[in-house]
Nucleic acid binder design. Structure first.
Length: 753
DNA sequence: GTCTCTAACCTTTTT
DNA sequence: GGTTAGAGAC
């Protein structure tokens, strides 16, 4: 390790400034991780700080693992007990040790969003509230918000005149009570409880203050209030806190991230030193210039201008597709071109200079991946999706995990209720409700409730037998835990419960794919156990609960990567596509015109732009299917904010319409006439409609609310349009015969206005 | 209690 | 367009 060889002067300064608070503004691609890893290595190697006195927190496990790996490489050995982990896993580690202070047992389980949802629904029902006026998900996010601001159920004081708040207070209290009964914590609790622990038990706080002499926080712009408070509590003694972040890459405001944490850091730590890393090592001049121009439009930011010594590189390419299919064809055609350049196009190169793993496609929302996927499949290009429907969210996986969770913590009623009748055992909703009421009244966990009811012979005879059988089976599994390995335990669950057998009997394609997934889960568990540490069952469940989408991402396979812009943060690719540069998509219409929201959307775009090392392709579609309904989107306002001279517009041939079937999409005969034109020519006037309707003659502009005439039913008003293909239907209210749903193709409609 | 079919919701982003 | 929750039939 040689600081002067491996780091530029500013980076070196950030490494050497070890004492006291330090704020590092690290622009995209400026070597942020490098600084952090060298800093840790420097502390251990040069300043002889014992590794376990160092705490470094990140947001994803992937980032933590990467940091660990790089520190190990620098130190030529292990990280020897340095705490390098995510906020959440650090908190779990602390709570497993000290949570008894707060009246929980150390084998608590962590509820995910789905568990929370079920849990809260039960409470709303219990209170006799209408789920329509008090939607569980809205209540949940309100509770989460309170936790993120450090407000506990007992402390929350609702406004006396606000019915919503009053009910919220009631629900929040009951929700926490029930969690305690289940010995369970939700995501928000993990952080919140540690701050409570620190506040109420100074000796515990003292222990960690003494322990951590040096604290580092990565991606500081994404911390929320509670995370910041946690850090402040810990560093209050030694005050050796180094935070690294980039306000321009703050994209989690909607989840409570406080951009003020980084912008006002100097106010909380007046003695702090500020270092700004502005040299970019990742992107070409053109890419960087475009990104700079974009983000400089934001008003609420610390001014900085990234620069690079890299070559100018190629211009950004922009394509306007007819619809998302056309857009996808453009993307795939370009991918093929990059990976298999034909001699005619490149002049000389015979071998592809790019492989699939060099390429990533980013989008605003997950739903946009579909069109791209279809097109990639059609062309036999391997790809991987980061995020979206996750493995651990599949029903069968969650079922098996629920059994395991319960074995780990028999107080966990949510998991128990999930599987008590899976596969069907003749134990129904009503029985469960009775047990729940009984348990709540007596302060039992759900399982204790069942056992109590059995002893007292509360169940009707038929139910009694079934329940007895179930309890016997679960007790058996609980015993298995002592003697069995985690793998054996999982296999025992699958066999004893009849879960696997039931799926096999079903024999449908769906059931068989579930069996395959379960098979995969057993593989994962086996692997985990082999290089495992700690108690396998608990650590495995923790790992699964705290896993994020990006964590599953493996970059070793040679595949094109597809992901949302949010997932893209922290990654880089030689070639990047950003699709859907449209008003309503990016910026997304669910955000208002509020300046902070708009600026965050702009930052999101900025994050996407700065992931690219060499080439950047941007695109949009004039028409897009949302909810299976056609929609026309104008170009994003962000497009105009990119410097004109950095962009070349690629125009499409009119024939692309007939191209939806037949020949391979990228065949040279079709594309070779492409040319570069300027904006004026590329802009195609947009039809002023919000629904496009397909008729035998072609497209027909039909607006909702428009009056039309049908040959048989007479005059009517358009209420809705469904679909875009030849099966497209339209719902029309006719004065004569009422509402009708008609296939547009055959309806023979005539527009009246 | 179990299974099947319809209707509503959905899509912003996730540790 | 696709999934999922709730209603209705057996």
């Amino acid at each position: 390790m040689s600081l002067s060889d491996d780091l530029n002067p500013v980076q070196q300064e950030a490494v050497l400034e070890t004492e006291g608070p330090l704020l590092v503004f690290a622009g995209a691609g400026s070597g942020k991780t490098r600084v952090l890893t060298y800093r840790i290595a420097y502390l251990v190697h040069e300043k002889r700080v014992p590794p376990w006195k160092i705490l470094a927190v990140t947001f994803t496990n992937k980032a933590a693992d990467e940091m660990k790996e790089r520190v190990e490489r620098l130190l030529g050995g292990s990280t020897k007990g340095a705490w390098i982990s995510t906020f959440h896993s650090a908190c779990v580690r602390i709570l497993r040790r000290h949570i008894d202070h707060l009246g929980f047992k150390s084998n608590f389980v962590i509820y995910d969003e789905q568990d929370q949802d079920r849990h809260l629904k039960g409470i709303i029902k219990e209170l006799g509230l209408d789920p329509k006026t008090f939607p569980p998900r809205k209540m949940l996010s309100a509770i989460d918000h309170l936790k993120n601001r450090g407000v506990s159920a007992e402390e929350y004081v609702p406004s006396e005149f606000n019915i919503f708040q009053k009910k919220l207070a009631q629900i929040y209290r009951l929700y926490q009570e029930d969690l305690r009964r289940n010995n369970a914590l939700d995501f928000g609790d993990l952080l919140h409880f540690v701050t409570l622990l620190f506040r109420r038990f100074p000796e515990v706080l003292k222990f960690y203050q003494d322990l951590f002499h040096y604290v580092m926080v990565d991606e500081f712009q994404d911390t929320n209030l509670i995370q910041y408070e946690l850090i402040r509590q810990i560093v209050n003694l030694h005050r050796n806190l180094c935070v690294v972040g980039d306000d321009d890459q703050s994209i989690y405001r909607w989840r409570g991230a406080e951009i003020g944490n980084i912008l006002n850091f100097a106010r909380d730590f007046p003695e702090c030193k500020v270092i700004t890393l502005e040299q970019n090592y990742r992107s070409t001049q053109n890419i960087l210039q475009a990104a700079n121009a974009m983000v400089s439009r934001n008003r609420f930011r610390k001014k900085k201008v990234l620069w690079t010594e890299n070559p100018g590189g190629e211009l950004l390419t922009f394509y306007t597709g007819e619809d998302e299919g056309d857009e996808a064809r453009f993307v795939v055609k370009k991918i093929v071109e990059q990976c298999h350049p034909s001699p005619a196009l490149t002049g000389l190169s015979e071998t592809p200079d790019r492989v699939f793993r060099d390429i990533a496609v980013f989008y605003r929302i997950n739903a946009q991946s579909r069109a791209i996927e279809d097109e990639l499949v059609k062309n036999g290009i391997p790809y991987t999706i980061v995020g979206g429907m996750k493995f651990y969210e599949r029903k069968e996986i969650k079922d098996v995990l629920a059994y395991l969770k319960w074995i780990s913590n028999p107080s966990d009623g949510i998991s128990l209720k999930r599987v008590i009748n899976v596969p069907p055992r003749g134990i129904g909703e009503k029985t469960l409700e009775k047990i729940e009421a009984l348990s709540r009244e007596k302060g039992f966990s759900f399982y204790e409730g069942i056992r109590h009811a059995l002893e007292e012979r509360w169940f009707p005879p038929a139910t009694h037998g079934k329940m007895e059988e179930f309890v016997r089976m679960m007790e058996e599994l609980r015993k298995d835990r002592e003697a069995f390995s985690l793998r054996q335990l999982t296999l025992a669950v699958l066999a004893q419960t009849g879960y696997l057998q039931r799926l096999k009997e079903e024999g449908t394609d769906e059931a068989l794919s579930r069996v395959e997934n379960i098979d995969e889960l057993v593989n994962v568990i086996t692997e985990f156990e082999q290089d495992g540490e700690g108690i396998p069952l608990e650590s495995f469940l923790d790992k699964v609960s705290l896993m994020s989408d990006v964590d599953l991402y493996e970059d070793k396979k040679n595949r094109v990567s597809l992901m949302t812009l949010h997932c893209a943060k922290g990654l880089e690719f030689p070639i990047v596509f950003i699709i859907g540069i449209e008003e309503g998509v990016l910026p997304h219409h669910r955000r208002g015109e509020e300046i902070h929201d708009l600026e965050e959307e702009r930052r999101l775009f900025y994050v996407g732009l700065t992931r690219a090392k060499e080439r950047l392709f941007l695109s949009r579609a004039e028409r897009r299917l949302t909810f299976g309904v056609g929609r026309v989107n104008p170009a994003s306002r962000f497009l105009e904010e990119l410097p004109e001279e950095l962009i070349q517009y690629e125009i499409r041939r009119e024939e692309s319409r007939r191209h939806s079937s037949g020949e391979p999409e990228w065949s040279d005969s079709f594309w070779e006439e492409e040319k570069v034109v300027d904006m004026a020519d590329a802009e195609i006037p947009l039809p002023a409609v919000d629904r496009i309707v397909l008729t035998p003659e072609g497209f027909m502009p039909l607006r909702i609310g428009m009056m039309v005439r049908h040959p048989k039913f007479g005059e009517g008003r358009v209420k809705a349009v469904e679909g875009m293909d030849e099966n497209q239907k339209v719902i029309i209210f006719f004065q004569a015969v009422g509402s009708k749903r008609l296939k547009v193709r055959y309806a023979n409609l005539e527009i009246l206005e």
